[in-house]
């Protein structure tokens, strides 16, 4: 997926941009979770994903291989969350 360049148009922000929109569907701050990329297997904090927000919905990509890890679309009446690109999300929780 990643045969190009990005960032040259200010299109990309980091995964912290997911925190606000995803408070509607997660009880915890998703940016504190660690995601494993289905495409390359790399694991890292959701906050470090590369988020394309100047699009019809939020698209978060792996900083290593540029594959889509997570997508989120808030329509007027629903929220759509695609986690196909994440093998797992690992949330630290109080013991």
């Amino acid at each position: 997926m990643g045969n190009g360049t990005d960032g040259d148009l200010g299109q990309v922000v980091d995964g912290n941009a997911l925190a606000g929109p995803l408070t509607e569907v997660f009880a915890v701050d998703i940016t504190t979770a660690r995601a494993r990329c289905t495409s390359c297997g790399a694991t890292g904090p959701v906050a470090a994903l590369r988020v394309y927000g100047r699009a019809p919905a939020l698209v978060a990509r792996c900083p290593g291989c540029a594959a889509v890890v997570l997508r989120f679309n808030r329509t007027p009446t629903a929220a759509w969350l695609d986690l196909q690109g994440a093998t797992s999300l690992h949330f630290p929780l109080p013991g």
Partner: peptide, 12 residues
């Protein structure tokens, strides 16, 4: 002409 993009811009 707004530019919207869901990923890196391919250079082909």
């Amino acid at each position: 002409f707004p530019v919207l993009s869901a990923g890196p811009t391919p250079r082909v």
